[in-house]
Design a protein around this nucleic acid. Structure first.
Lengths: 220, 220, 220, 220
DNA sequence: AATGAATGAGGATTCATTCAT
DNA sequence: AATGAATGAATCCTCATTCAT
């Protein structure tokens, strides 16, 4: 079991070798305090970026001194690790379930899209960090597992898209991988500007995006 | 005249009152040395991120000492400023020209898309920085002008899309603003993974994206 | 409450909005460590000047690393701020008390002079900094409050001198403001060369100066 | 002959060893350009302080690049050296002349005071630098000669004061050295706040100061 | 007489992290 | 669980000075 993540599911390689702090209980429940701190940090990371957020700012937000954070976490990286692995664990579990449940290719693809949109609000911070700080984080060995997780997700989408093409539902001239990336990017990047309030909620955005992706902007 | 930008066109407010270094000559041509340094820095910013790139790394790349960079630039920020304003100046000039040239709404929109794709290679570094570091840079007063530039671009696109709807070419149920953002994001985010070599060049990507955006992935 | 001053009394405008470090406890007592560091810094500032004293020198004197100073202080400026505001707070409180206590104009003026001389030893460092580095420090916004403090002191002196003139004790042809400045300068500038040991103590100096100022060097 | 000073008179020890730049012609006339630069630098040193004034600021003021200053001067220090030695050379020459000319002790002392006041305007910058930056400059070997110059001045004053005491004109209970310093400080420190315009000119200030020093502020 | 590019040494400051209490 | 003090390495930037042109 890793020292910093509960799931471990999303994590391809469990970097052991330590566990000096905070093993979670067998029940899988972490301390509320810890979870609270992760949430505070997530907000800050999303707002200011991972690098630009200092450990002191996180501690200030929590009303403690920066050194005290290290009672809960190994490092600043382990906090963001927890945020990101939580997100991927949930996303992949949902994606797998969608594929296992089956249905028409269109239904499966719609499920995948809906799942992605569904993460936009509960995991807004994680997605924002991924958008803004991935370029930096990907350089750290510790986050290599995220690349593998992302590849697994990609495979699931490509499979769904190919099934749709085989079934004659989706245009056969489209490259499944490019199509996946286009959809993925278009959804996740929206965290940059999408504000769930304002009369534009996630459902409207979802409807609009799915509609364009499926039928294009042309009048047919 | 600002000390950090050549064009000034993209820059809404000329922040004077510092400028002890490096005004460009009346010809509008900067020194070759300076331009070279900007290019080196752009590569590094794109690869490692703005914050994660140290001034020393830029200097090392140029074969000089870090302090010597300050003979050419006021600050690290003024380097990235130059990179970004160059990009926006060119993009906006091209967009404006496309609108002025006119044509059918479809032609205009196609031009805007083609222009955006066309910046992907010459301004790859700028776009990458914008994708990865904007969250940080937007917090700096000095980059407020970029927000205004982006808004002007948005208006041009929205106008083109609306014209297409009025002409009955584009689906009237689509929100022009959401549509613009979807297209913009989808194009620019691709710098994250798009490598122009590999048998997948910008034209193929362009063709694929335009095709999906115009006609959707559905078989009609 | 400011983060850098204990008294706040001498400080005309409380510059809030930073203060992530070091608020003093409710008791108004700073940590001994901090006070010790301020004293060390004061000595160095007095000896070498504010600008010429490096943060590393202060830290060296304290036996810690330069970065560690920032656990206690926001900046080098906030250290000197503390030194100077302590001095002004005390001086002004004493001056106010002297005026409130009343007495003949001569007694009041003598009190003011005695108070000024009395600060020469306990606040030698602050006065030295004021003499040597004021030209630099006055350019910093943060020290604008010192100008106002000085003006309040001037008003108290001028009042005392005018009272003496009204009472027929002091020559009516003298400009109270010029007279004040002459006395003030003459006292404080002496820190430049006055060494309290050497058989010339502050009392002798005080006696000499008061005698000349009151009666002149002429034989009458 | 030194490389940086014309007079050499005020300079106790002629630091040779170079003379690679700017020897003055046998006529004692330096280039106008050089004198102009010294004047510009003097203004800046007086306004901002010696340390706080950068070589680039001086060059900017002269409309040249900072490196170009080194065609005229060895170093920043040699500029201030020229400013200060000019001042001392003139002051000492005048003081010597006053003593040689003789007269009653009162006349001699009055002359010395008048001479000091007389330097306030033409040498305002030098005196200001001396007041503000002496604490720093005195630490530099190169300026040791100023200490000797100052001592010579002190001796002249003390002699004059003693003569006055012997003649029964000045109070015999006063310490001549303390009296000198009091007068000297009181005059020179006034550059800090004294602005020659404003209806308060040097003559009024002179009259006031002399009057107080000679007769005190008491009504007799 | 001046430029333009660079040096090199240092300066204040930041910040993740450690650790004794 | 948390404090308070400190570390140590790095960061951006400054500036007097040099020198080939």
């Amino acid at each position: 079991m890793t020292t910093t993540t509960n799931s471990g599911r999303a994590r391809a390689s469990a970097r052991e070798g330590g566990g000096r702090r905070r093993a979670r209980g067998a029940t899988g429940l972490a301390s509320e305090r810890r979870d609270h701190l992760v949430k505070l940090a997530a907000e800050l990371f999303a707002k200011k970026g991972f690098q630009a957020t200092t450990v002191r700012e996180i501690a200030d937000e929590a009303g403690i001194l920066s050194g005290s954070l290290y009672h809960h976490f190994d490092s600043k990286e382990s906090i963001v690790d927890e945020i990101l692995s939580n997100f991927f664990t949930e996303l992949m579990a949902a994606d797998r379930a969608a594929l296992e449940q089956g249905g028409t290719p269109e239904e499966v693809l719609a499920s995948l899209v809906r799942i992605s949109f569904g993460t936009l609000e509960p995991h807004r911070a994680a997605i924002t960090v991924l958008q803004n700080d991935w370029n930096y984080l990907k350089g750290l060995e510790r986050f290599a597992y995220l690349i593998q997780a992302e590849e697994e997700v990609e495979q699931m989408w490509i499979e769904a898209i190919k099934n749709g093409q085989t079934a004659g539902l989706f245009r056969p001239d489209l490259d499944p991988r490019l199509t996946y990336r286009m959809i993925r990017d278009t959804i996740w990047v929206s965290v940059r500007w999408f504000q769930p309030n304002e009369g534009l909620d996630a459902k409207v955005l979802y409807g609009h995006y799915v509609s364009v992706l499926l039928d294009g902007i042309h009048v047919h």
